[in-house]
């Protein structure tokens, strides 16, 4: 459903992605882990079509992101790490625009928006201008916009960062529902516990390359101090430092 092959991206002399390849199958939630600067956000932004790759390709639901942008974006949802909106508008106005662009059926789209906003505890502020929103509220709004149309591929860049506990639970429930309905979810996070509980598989990035790919069965046992995935992640980082 989401195929990333040979993806390369440089910022001047700095290599952010150096031939990243992996895929995410329908119904699968794949975690993306990496230290700061490992290339997670670059990978997600490139996969979302926000910036072109220097080499390689990304296919979303069978469509190349840069050759068939319209078709791929119809199938895609993207929750940004640093969401930005039209500050003058309310969340409801922005989401109604997103729904209209995606030509969603208006009545059901509005009902879904209200249900998601209620679950994420944003319902009471839907008609307030976005410029008065906190960081967490902006992240929630970005998440709702990403899942509103029930995408086939969902890219979440630190999507739950800034969520309060009940909202984080509701968002994780929504992600699991999306996956059950066949959505391929790529979920980037710094919080290994969240990834461990939510994801079926983990891709670990180091210096713009895939350092490890682990399925749930591969995580092994943790220690008293660290959860299994946290242990695996720290091992990967230590290996990187030793190289």
């Amino acid at each position: 459903m989401l195929e990333i092959s040979g993806l390369e991206r440089r910022y001047g002399a700095r290599v952010a992605l150096a031939g990243v390849s992996f895929d995410v199958q329908p119904g699968e939630i794949v975690g993306l882990l990496g230290a700061n600067g490992a290339g997670k956000s670059t990978l997600l932004r490139t996969a979302a079509g926000l910036q072109p790759p220097d080499a390689g390709r990304v296919r979303v639901a069978g469509h190349d992101v840069w050759e068939s942008p319209l078709e791929s974006r119809r199938a895609l949802g993207y929750a940004a790490e640093e969401p930005a909106f039209h500050e003058e508008l309310s969340a409801a106005e922005y989401l109604s625009f997103v729904s209209s662009v995606r030509a969603l059926e208006p009545v059901s789209a509005e009902a879904r928006m209200r249900a998601l906003a209620g679950a994420l505890e944003l319902g009471a502020r839907l008609d307030d201008p976005v410029r008065g929103y906190s960081h967490g509220m902006r992240k929630k709004l970005s998440f709702i916009a990403a899942v509103l149309h029930r995408p086939q591929v969902l890219l979440c860049d630190e999507a739950l960062e800034g969520f309060d506990a009940p909202s984080a639970l509701a968002a994780k429930a929504e992600l699991r529902t999306r996956a059950r309905e066949g959505c391929a979810v790529l979920f980037s996070s710094h919080v290994t516990e969240t990834v461990e509980r939510l994801c079926d598989r983990v891709v670990m990035l180091r210096h713009g390359r895939v350092a490890r790919e682990l399925s749930r069965a591969d995580w092994g046992a943790g220690t008293e101090e660290h959860s299994p995935l946290e242990r695996a992640f720290l091992d990967m980082v230590t290996e990187g430092a030793a190289e």
């Binding site: 409801a92 209209s100 662009v101 995606r102 030509a103 789209a109 008609d127």
Partner: peptide, 12 residues
Amino acid sequence: RRPAPRWLAEGG
């Protein structure tokens, strides 16, 4: 607060 928007399905 902003007025509630009209929900349409216009596309593009």
